[in-house]
Computed example of a mutant assay.
Amino acid sequence: MRITRRTMLQGAAGVAAMFGQRASAVTEMDLGDIRITTVSDGYLSLPESFLIGDLPRDEARAILDEAGIAPGGFAPPCNVTLLRKGTQTVLFDAGAGPSFMQSAGRLPGTLAALDLSPEDITHVIFTHGHPDHLWGVIDDFDEPLFANARHFIGRVERDYWMDPRTPDTIGAARQSFVAGAARRIALLGDRLETAEDGDMILEDVMARMSAGHTPGHMSFEIGEGRALVAGDAIGNAHLAFARPGWPMPADQDPELAARTREALLEELAERGMPLIGFHLPGGGIGEVARTGEGYLYVPRA
């Protein structure tokens, strides 16, 4: 397996350095006849409470300190995964677009650095409907940005965001997520196809239910165990690995998400399967190693 790193779009690199983020770097991994590339959509700017919430603060803070996460805030990267094989050019998630956070929404520029335009994308496959994964699918004219692509999302996930009861149950902090997701799903219309757990969306892409972060969150196994695109099922490289059973405040169903995370980490460590995570450092491509109390994320860059 060969992995290389290079930096694109030098104009954006200064912004990345200012905030300690990889704004435009590209990380690549070859899986036989499949090339996996992660490209940056920027990063999020989040309060520390988004990480710690009601967790045991002293213990959580010690783990974060060891990981180099300073008190007060958190700026996770946003890694969009690109799969290329033959005539297929597949995106997993579409980034945030211009309407969520100023620090995100850079996907079109990073694709351009690879000499790819939105029209070159043949498939867009969503892990879930949160803003940083879905909102970038529509352009400034409310048209699908990836005009030639087939779009896929888990049926459970689509139904959740379109359910008229969801705004009353999701909580005030995520109210805008519902409106934004429902609007984009509606604009995609018949372009958006649905998948069930275990479906082979493409010859080398199998959908796997990994609920908890959202009710219908999907991960995607590439090439019968060659890699796993995990989306936000494993949402960071510190607390989620060191204490996978802790209920994380970022998850909509923290208890279910913890069970999902524990099962995935155990499987990834057992199988030696590369992990591709949307908010993991180093381009988001790495491996899972067991430690005494939990797991360790080992970037492969």
Rank of each mutant, 00 (worst) to 15 (best):
R2T: 13
I3K: 03
I3M: 10
A12V: 00
A12R: 10
A13I: 03
V15A: 14
A17S: 12
A17H: 12
M18I: 06
F19Y: 15
R22E: 15
R22D: 15
V26F: 00
E28Y: 02
G32S: 06
D33R: 14
D33W: 07
R35W: 04
I36G: 04
D41T: 06
D41E: 13
G42C: 11
S49W: 04
G53D: 07
L55R: 08
L55E: 10
D58V: 11
E59H: 11
R61E: 15
E66D: 15
G68H: 08
A75G: 06
V80K: 03
Q88C: 04
V90Y: 01
F92P: 00
A94T: 03
P98V: 09
M101N: 10
Q102H: 13
L107I: 09
P108H: 13
L111S: 03
D115W: 01
L116R: 05
L116D: 07
P118H: 08
D120Y: 06
H123D: 15
H123A: 10
I125N: 06
T127G: 11
H128Y: 09
H128P: 01
H130E: 12
H130T: 14
I138V: 13
F141E: 15
P144S: 14
N148Q: 07
N148K: 13
A149N: 09
F152L: 08
G154E: 08
R155Y: 01
V156D: 10
R158I: 01
D159R: 11
Y160V: 04
M162P: 00
R165F: 06
P167G: 09
G171T: 11
V178P: 02
A179P: 00
A179H: 13
A182F: 03
L187H: 05
T194G: 09
E196A: 14
D199A: 14
I201P: 05
L202T: 11
M206I: 08
H213R: 03
T214D: 14
T214V: 04
T214I: 02
G216V: 01
M218F: 11
S219C: 12
S219A: 15
F220W: 11
G223K: 13
G225C: 07
G225I: 07
R226W: 03
R226G: 05
A227P: 07
L228V: 12
G231R: 00
H238R: 02
H238N: 12
L239Q: 09
R243N: 13
W246P: 08
R259V: 07
E270F: 03
M273Q: 15
I276V: 15
F278P: 00
G282V: 05
G282D: 09
G284F: 01
G284Y: 05
I285R: 08
G286K: 05
E287I: 04
V288R: 07
V288Q: 09
T291Q: 10
E293I: 03
E293R: 13
L296I: 00
L296F: 02
Y297V: 07
P299N: 11
A301C: 06
A301E: 14
